[in-house]
Design a protein around this nucleic acid. Structure first.
Lengths: 188, 188
DNA sequence: CGCGCGATTGAGTAATTTCAAATCTAGTGG
DNA sequence: CCACTAGATTTGAAATTACTCAATCGCGCG
């Protein structure tokens, strides 16, 4: 069951079939339509999500009304407002579907329980968040040292499929430039 | 021994005295003079460091020769080039002392061993890297949605002591602006 | 065919950078 | 104690870059 989920675990830790069965029994499938909002700002974040199919954006709207993309997530990506999820505070992000989406979700309680019960789940969580840490490190260094042009190229060749699936305005909101600036980049 | 280190662990997990003794036996004290370089780019990163005393910067020099600060670390902070440390690749950062420094360090091998042996060490590592993840998240959102002025204020009131201890040019290199721009911010 | 959304283009404005010079400050040696 | 120097900070002015706001273009879908 859930081979994509199984692969996630197997790539980082070793699990017996029984152990995986036990873990995966805490996940449930959810489906959402394009445009549906999975998480609203100001809510308690009860779930962490794993994308089986489709595409999602996590974003925040600043006090001038501008949208800033925190993360895109497609197949095999994990999504949540992790800060709010972990601290039990209210979410500051919106999570919304850019396509029809099929997800697995696990509740905070179950996840916490699994981490306490199983060293290997704790380890899996550590390694996953560590790789998230690294992507963010990379993104920060890119924001500090590269101009919009090379951040665009970098994103483009790391995730070429994103550009078939996501409007350019959202790419701009991810890179931290306006859509107009992004549009002018390619020519110059 | 090492009460500051003990507090790090006790804040996140529960340990018996014996367990803490065992963990702490893997750390050793190192001292460096102001200006000393603890890690050079291109080296294997063998250690994770915990700052007992002093102040450190972790930075990268881009291909135009500009310095970008990844992290400052003072008392009770953890430092390493975590990506290189974890993946065993060569470091891309320089770690250098801004003051005389006293550190605890643990080797990659020992740390890995402790995480495998002790669920609680694995958990500690997960929680620590998670909070690092959150700081980075905050920093990215600040880079995306705030101008230099408010990033400066934000840093200033989160770490006021930094401004007594660090030259402004380095603060600028952390915030992603030139020293001249930073200098002009306060007046306007 | 025409509506509507996304993408592009243009022109003026604002913010940041660059390069150069001036000012300030802390530490050193006389 | 003072003068001096190196490093840090500030200031000025021009150039660059990105932004805003408005208008136009292009294309898929009903």
């Amino acid at each position: 069951m859930y081979p994509a989920l199984k692969k996630q675990f197997e790539d980082l830790i070793q699990l017996t079939d029984t152990e995986f069965e036990y873990i995966s029994s805490h996940y449930q499938v959810k489906r959402f339509k394009k445009h549906a909002i999975i998480l609203h700002p100001g809510e308690i974040v009860n779930y962490e999500y794993f994308v089986l199919k489709g595409l999602i954006k996590t974003f925040m709207v600043d006090n001038e009304g501008k949208e800033h993309i925190w993360q895109f997530a497609m197949e095999d990506w994990w999504v949540s407002d992790y800060y709010a999820f972990q601290t039990r505070e209210l979410s500051s992000f919106t999570i919304q579907c850019l396509e029809d989406v099929e997800l697995l979700r696990i509740s905070y309680t179950d996840r916490d329980k699994l981490c306490r019960e199983m060293h290997s789940m704790e380890r899996f969580s550590r390694l996953k968040i560590t790789s998230g840490f690294f992507s963010q490190q990379k993104r920060i260094m890119a924001l500090l040292q590269n101009d919009a042009q090379s951040r665009y190229k970098q994103l483009l060749d790391q995730y070429p499929s994103l550009f078939q699936r996501v409007p350019k305005a959202l790419i701009a909101a991810y890179l931290g430039v306006t859509r107009e600036t992004l549009s002018r980049l390619r020519i110059e």
